[in-house]
């Protein structure tokens, strides 16, 4: 019964998100088929009214909004995300091609920031108020506060442009056939280093701070003193008790931050022209491509939502004190 209740809650959340997802993009003022102006120097071909009418009829945009909403839900139920208005392709195809890149970036950033954040946070807590702690803390503060796009631009300029260590943009070297799988993989990682680093650095501070604070708060705990009394070495106490205690908030933090992380990915992908969903969604918003915006929103939110579901399951596994549903 309780499980069912939980499930309905998630279904309701999904429904709410679906509705927001449908109406928010359509509330944007502007017409997706109207092209009066372009960016400086950009060529545009303005559509005539007749042409716009033909397109709108073709995509069902001439229907009343509530009917579009119903047919949108019906289409979704049949697993159809619709047809992109601007990119002339089915949204499902576009999303499928872009998704792996974003997942790759985000996972890379999570992995990198968590591992490094935990290590540095523990180190910092261990040497609390010593030189190392202060230096680390200062660095973390500095980098975690600078917006990801600025870090990204900075990386782009220093490491890619001036030093030439990394490629300027993109996810792969185009037009170089006859490469082995290893070479291709190396190429992909080579391209991903800067975006992942830029994305991680902004997350790193949060992770570091979290671990550091938990560790610090754990030191005076009674069981730690007991452990120390038992003669365990400080390192082992730290690793065993500290990390175990940090695991819970850390996992929640990771899952919690997914939404923001995706937000960061939007900016970073734009800086590095990285072909993920983030780059796509900003383009889609720019041209008011409703079905595409909705499709990308939906995929991202569903992914993050299922991650949340997982985090709750994990939470319960890891912390038996929190009981299921207080009522």
């Amino acid at each position: 019964m309780k499980k069912l209740g939980r499930l309905t809650e998630y279904v309701i959340t999904v429904l709410i998100i679906l509705s927001i997802n449908f109406f928010l993009p359509r509330m944007m003022p502007g017409d997706p088929f109207l092209f009066l102006s372009g960016d400086q120097g950009e060529q545009i071909s303005a559509y005539s009214d007749e042409q716009i009418r033909q397109y709108k009829a073709c995509y069902g945009l001439d229907q009343p909004i509530f009917r579009s909403y119903l047919s949108y839900l019906a289409d979704l139920f049949r697993g159809r995300l619709g047809q992109s208005l601007y990119f002339n392709e089915s949204v499902g195809h576009i999303v499928l091609r872009r998704l792996p890149w974003t997942v790759f970036l985000v996972c890379g950033a999570i992995l990198f920031s968590t591992v490094l954040g935990t290590a540095l946070g523990s180190l910092s807590a261990f040497y609390r108020n010593r030189l190392l702690d202060n230096v680390l803390y200062g660095f973390m503060m500095f980098f975690s506060e600078i917006p990801a796009f600025l870090i990204g631009l900075f990386f782009l300029f220093v490491f890619a442009a001036s030093l030439g260590l990394f490629p300027l943009s993109g996810a792969l070297t185009s037009f170089s056939p006859d490469r082995s799988v290893v070479q291709v993989l190396k190429d992909i990682i080579h391209h991903a280093v800067l975006p992942v680093a830029a994305l991680s650095l902004t997350r790193l501070g949060g992770m570091y701070l979290l671990v550091r604070n938990i560790m610090i708060s754990i030191i005076p705990k009674a069981y730690m003193r007991t452990a120390r009394a038992k003669g365990l070495s400080r390192y082992r106490i730290f690793i065993r008790h500290g990390l175990r205690n940090a695991l819970l908030p850390l996992t929640t933090r990771i899952f919690m931050s997914l939404g923001t992380l995706v937000g960061g990915a939007v900016l970073v992908e734009n800086v590095f022209a990285y072909p993920g969903l983030g780059l796509m969604i900003s383009q889609a918003v720019m041209v008011h491509d409703y079905p595409l915006i909705q499709g990308i929103f939906l995929v991202i939110t569903l992914l993050v939502l299922s991650a949340n579901l997982m985090s709750e399951v994990l939470y319960r596994v890891l912390d038996p004190r929190v009981k299921d549903g207080e009522g």
């Binding site: 003022p29 017409d31 109207l34 720019m286």
Partner: peptide, 12 residues
């Protein structure tokens, strides 16, 4: 100041 699409629609 609005985004480009909004401006275009308002001008039309």
């Amino acid at each position: 100041s609005v985004d480009g699409k909004t401006r275009d629609a308002r001008v039309r």
